[in-house]
């Protein structure tokens, strides 16, 4: 019954679904390139969050969207951030 059900259901791995997934990934990157404002906004928010845990060197921050190759020849859009830390804040220590 299950196999019959499967037969009548949609095929797995349709090429149009692969196309759609690839497009979604590549557009994440393209769109970020089109609008640097988007990355800047995100950068500001990341700094805000991290600043409550550590002192960071804002001038040295480098945040980028890049594509990282997977083993199976596909790519994953990846956020790569280089954030120099001046020192950790002294909170939450010895509390757990």
């Amino acid at each position: 019954m299950i196999s019959l059900f499967k037969f009548f259901s949609k095929d797995e791995n349709k090429s149009k679904d692969i196309a759609k997934e690839r497009l979604k990934l590549v557009l994440t990157h393209d769109r970020a390139n089109v609008s640097p404002k988007y990355l800047d906004m995100m950068k500001d928010d990341i700094i805000k969050v991290m600043s409550s845990y550590m002192e960071i060197e804002e001038e040295g921050i480098d945040i980028n969207l890049t594509r990282v190759a997977n083993d199976d020849d596909t790519y994953t859009s990846t956020l790569v951030a280089n954030i120099p830390i001046k020192k950790m804040k002294n909170i939450g220590k010895n509390n757990g």
Binding site: K10, D11, K14, S15, K16, D17, A19, K20, L23, K24
Partner: peptide
Amino acid sequence: LVKRGDMMNIDDTNEI
């Protein structure tokens, strides 16, 4: 091609 899943359909293209 759309029928056999080998071309993005109207909804796919619209969604993207």
